[in-house]
């Protein structure tokens, strides 16, 4: 989708775009599984994040780290949860390794220089399995993105994600 938008904007909007705006200010990898109830419960928040931040220069990519997943399982998952995001099937776990995530749902945020600035949970709705707040009181991911967009210096931050663990690849 982002690619299509980019091409469209290049075709129609090139004169009005400065080069700085073309470059993403942050990219977010959201690690998910098709059958993890905690990850799925965050689908509406993922859509809200996209609505709130994509137009401001944040790129979101869903990452499916389970190697054996079929393409049709991924496409029905996207459809069922109304997710209109770019996705990557991380069969060789290169994204898992680069970001160091362990869980779904877990996010990794990279700044404009491709530095990892945040790894962990989207917010604090879950503190433990079965302990779910009705509304989050800490919005870690939103805070990091707001800081990046405001141009504030962001030191690496980390929280412990709660959800379904990403299994190691066979043979690892």
């Amino acid at each position: 989708m982002t690619l299509i938008r980019l091409i469209l904007s290049l075709v129609f909007l090139v004169p009005s775009l400065s080069s700085a705006e073309e470059k993403e200010k942050a990219s977010v990898w959201i690690f998910v599984a098709v059958d993890c109830p905690i990850a799925n419960g965050y689908a509406p928040e993922m859509i809200r994040l996209q609505d709130d931040f994509e137009s401001r220069g944040v790129a979101f990519t869903l990452i499916y780290p389970e190697p054996a997943l079929s393409e049709s399982a991924i496409s029905s998952h996207l459809k069922d949860y109304a997710l209109d995001l770019d996705y990557h099937h991380d069969r060789d776990h290169s994204y898992v390794k680069k970001s160091g995530v362990t869980t779904t749902p877990e996010v990794a945020v990279f700044d404009a220089n491709d530095q990892l600035v945040y790894r962990g949970k989207i917010d604090n709705r879950y503190t433990e399995f079965g302990d779910r707040r009705n509304t989050a009181t800490e919005t870690y991911l939103r805070d990091v993105l707001s800081d990046l967009l405001a141009g504030n210096p962001v030191e690496f931050r980390e929280t412990e994600a709660i959800g379904c663990f990403i299994e190691a690849l066979a043979g690892n």
Binding site: E128, F129, C164, F165, E167
Partner: peptide
């Protein structure tokens, strides 16, 4: 096998 680590964690807690 696909969910082993998660199973171990929820059993443990």
């Amino acid at each position: 096998s696909r969910k082993a680590k998660t199973i171990a964690r929820v059993m443990d807690g």
